[in-house]
């Protein structure tokens, strides 16, 4: 008659020894050898503590409707800004352009995707434009991890050999990060204006100073105007036109992970190595105790292995 195994359970064998014995010492050593080397291995093989991570988010960018423009003619310049005090300082160089702007949310997700900006500067027929400098100001926000807010800037500049009728460019407003953001909290370190609007002093509007201050930040934006076109041949009576498309791309933002993310990541690495050590040392212990390589009192009672 055929016999089948219908049930099985392990039998627990106990080995006993006094506290000050070879067996206890052996067991202690094995425990340390099981637990510590995986930690060392996981640590030395790099990347044990997750210090930097990144995520992707489309920033919430708004054009602040603040700008400053300087156009260079052959021997003079024209300037205008939305800062009243700057305009007062310029006096004879001031020329008020027609500024049009439209922010478009292409995919209607509530975040603006690009800005159409155009500026028509009225110029007389004798004023030939050779160079331009333009500052646009944006409000830049990130929400996903830390609530990050800053005032950022796009600097568009071009200078040409021939006088132009139109300058046109299409580019992205790129996040420049020199420091990871925090993983939570409100971050408004850089939510300050680069230009002191209240100042009536000329140095407040000095580009050198503005750029120096802006560049000393750890998080800024940069406008890449790589694809720009300088159109020549302005007709009489035509204004000088600047057309800019600023795209707000999805950005990969680096951040410092929080405590629990670091712990979770480290634990996964540690555990993976620990399992191997546990298995190996289990075998060793079994061999040592079974063969009485260290003296122990063997509890002969055989009991079903209850947990």
């Amino acid at each position: 008659m055929a016999v089948i195994q219908v049930y099985s359970h392990a039998i627990q064998q106990k080995y006993k020894a006094s506290v000050c014995s070879k067996a206890t010492f052996f067991q202690l050593c094995v425990f340390i050898l099981t637990v510590v080397p995986p930690l060392i291995f996981a640590y030395k093989s790099q990347g044990f503590w997750l210090k930097l991570s990144s995520y992707v988010e489309q920033p919430d960018i708004r054009f602040k409707y603040q700008l400053l423009v300087i156009l260079d003619t052959a021997d003079d310049y024209l300037a205008w800004s939305t800062f009243q005090n700057f305009n007062s300082l310029q006096q004879s160089h001031i020329r008020i352009p027609l500024v049009k702007s439209r922010e478009e949310d292409v995919n209607r997700d509530g975040k603006k995707d690009l800005l159409h900006f155009s500026l028509e500067m009225p110029v007389t027929d004798t004023e030939d434009i050779f160079a331009l400098q333009l500052l646009l100001f944006f409000d830049y926000r990130l929400y996903k991890f830390s609530e990050f807010t800053m005032e950022s800037m796009a600097y568009v500049h071009h200078s040409a050999m021939q006088s132009g009728a139109e300058y046109s460019t299409d580019g992205h407003l790129i996040l420049v990060q020199r420091q990871p953001l925090a993983h939570r909290g409100v971050d408004s370190r850089y939510n300050n204006t680069s230009i002191d609007q209240e100042s009536i002093f000329a140095e407040a509007y000095d580009f050198k100073r503005i750029f120096k201050e802006y560049n000393s930040r750890n998080v800024t934006t940069r406008y890449d105007a790589d694809y720009s076109v300088w159109v020549r041949g302005r007709g009489s009576g035509m204004p000088f036109t600047i057309t800019i498309t600023v795209r707000y791309p999805e950005e990969s933002v680096t951040y410092t992970p929080g405590f629990w993310q670091v712990m979770k990541d480290a634990w996964i690495q540690y555990l993976a190595v620990l399992i191997i050590f546990v298995l190996v040392f289990d075998r060793i212990k079994k061999y040592v105790f079974k063969n009485q390589l260290v003296t122990t009192i063997v509890d002969r009672r055989v009991k079903p292995h209850d947990t």
Binding site: T82, I96, L98, V99, K100, S101, R102, E120, P122, G237
Partner: peptide, 28 residues
């Protein structure tokens, strides 16, 4: 809009139509 010297003109020819959705800023 301003004339080519940036001065105000009351001439209606110099005005710019307001287009839907386009924010504008002008002066003279």
């Amino acid at each position: 809009t301003a004339d080519s010297k940036g001065l105000c003109v009351s001439n209606t020819l110099q005005r710019t139509p307001i287009k839907f959705g386009v924010n504008m800023r002008s002066g003279c």
